[in-house]
């Protein structure tokens, strides 16, 4: 049985899918990249609700993208389903190993250690001449069993895939957040020791959260790779990971839709800052960031509460 909210999400997704046919291409591209980043941020939000901030989600973002790039190049395939699957497996494998170590860390040490891992991947990729070193390489455009979803010379497939994946991931995470295991996150943030006393393995729960976040990040990376058509090690650089944290805090951690919408707003903000002030866009971005932190301490999502109050 579908609830009102579920119907709304399905309807919104269908509307967005259809809107892709009429919206300007730059906008659908922006939304695709933003949703890809939004998925990474969604994973980050799961960790943040447990009190952990990863400055290294770029590791999985980049790994997912490179998995897609390498796989499609080696096996000469552009099947979008296969490529996303490869990214998921890649994120799963790496995170289940790295997570064993990282799930023991908290606070800033978790942040810095996760960053160290992503910087090591960055270093390895920069050293790999076969993978194009810091220039990276181009990735083939995706198709669905040979169908590229071309409309007026524009490829809408990755846009649609991004919308569908964002909705599916959003729905799953929404359920997860409400499950006992999802809820434990907040308890861990508030007081880890008490959670342990209740007989729950904190490390195990964080381990699972870490893997979920990693898989989301690699899916985000795979979408970016297919949409942009080019990948480079910059995706694993600490500034990329920092941007995800930036979006997460800007959007707020209150709802699964917050990171997705927040990412779109962030991308819009940045592209117009670029356009309006090519020489001082960083300053505009900085001022916007500080304004949000000052006036909306709980992120952009807290606006919805204000709207709700206004509506009632």
């Amino acid at each position: 049985m579908l609830s009102k909210n579920q119907i709304f999400v399905v309807a919104a997704a269908a509307l967005m899918i259809l809107a892709g046919l009429v919206m300007p291409y730059w906008f659908s591209f922006l939304v695709t990249v933003a949703l890809a980043k939004g998925l990474v941020v969604l994973g980050l939000v799961i960790l943040m609700r447990a009190g952990l901030v990863s400055f290294g989600q770029g590791l999985y973002y980049c790994a997912g993208a490179y998995a897609v790039g390498a796989f499609s190049d080696y096996f000469q395939t552009d099947n979008v389903l296969l490529l996303v699957l490869v990214a998921i497996v890649c994120g799963l494998v790496i995170s289940s190993i790295v997570g064993l170590l990282l799930s023991r860390y908290r606070d800033i040490f978790f942040a810095m250690f996760s960053m160290a891992f992503s910087m090591i991947l960055y270093g390895v990729l920069v050293k790999s001449a076969a993978l194009g070193s810091s220039d990276g390489f181009n990735v083939t455009k995706p198709s669905l069993f040979g169908w590229a979803a071309e409309f007026n010379g524009t490829n809408l497939l990755s846009y649609w895939v991004a919308i569908i994946l964002a909705c599916v991931a959003g729905a799953i995470i929404w359920r997860y957040m409400r499950s006992p295991m999802g809820m434990t996150g907040e308890a861990i943030r508030e007081n880890e020791i008490r959670v342990e006393y209740l007989g729950v393995s904190v490390q195990k729960i964080i381990y699972i959260k870490y893997i979920i976040a990693a898989v989301l990040a690699s899916v985000g990376g795979s979408i970016t790779a297919m949409t942009v058509g080019h990948i480079d090690p910059e995706m694993a650089y600490w500034t990329t990971s920092g941007e995800f944290v930036f979006i997460a805090l800007m959007a707020g951690t209150g709802h699964v839709a917050a990171p997705l919408i927040g990412a779109v707003i962030f991308e819009l903000m940045r592209t117009f800052a670029f356009q309006l002030s090519p020489y001082t866009w960083q300053m505009i971005l900085g001022i916007a960031l500080l304004s949000i932190i000052i006036f909306l301490p709980n992120g952009l999502w807290s606006l919805t509460d204000k709207f709700k109050k206004g509506a009632n």
């Binding site: 300007p24 291409y25 730059w26 591209f29 922006l30 990249v33 990276g136 970016t224 942009v228 058509g229 080019h230 990948i231 480079d232 910059e234 995706m235 990329t240 991308e267 940045r270 592209t271 670029f274 356009q275 090519p278 020489y279 866009w281």
Partner: peptide, 23 residues
């Protein structure tokens, strides 16, 4: 019409579209 090249390839691909379509 000037655009800053900073920010890496993903952003530049995005900005390229904006230049062509929006501007």
């Amino acid at each position: 019409v000037y655009v800053d090249e900073a920010g890496g390839a993903t952003k530049q691909v995005s900005e390229y579209r904006n230049l062509v379509e929006r501007q």
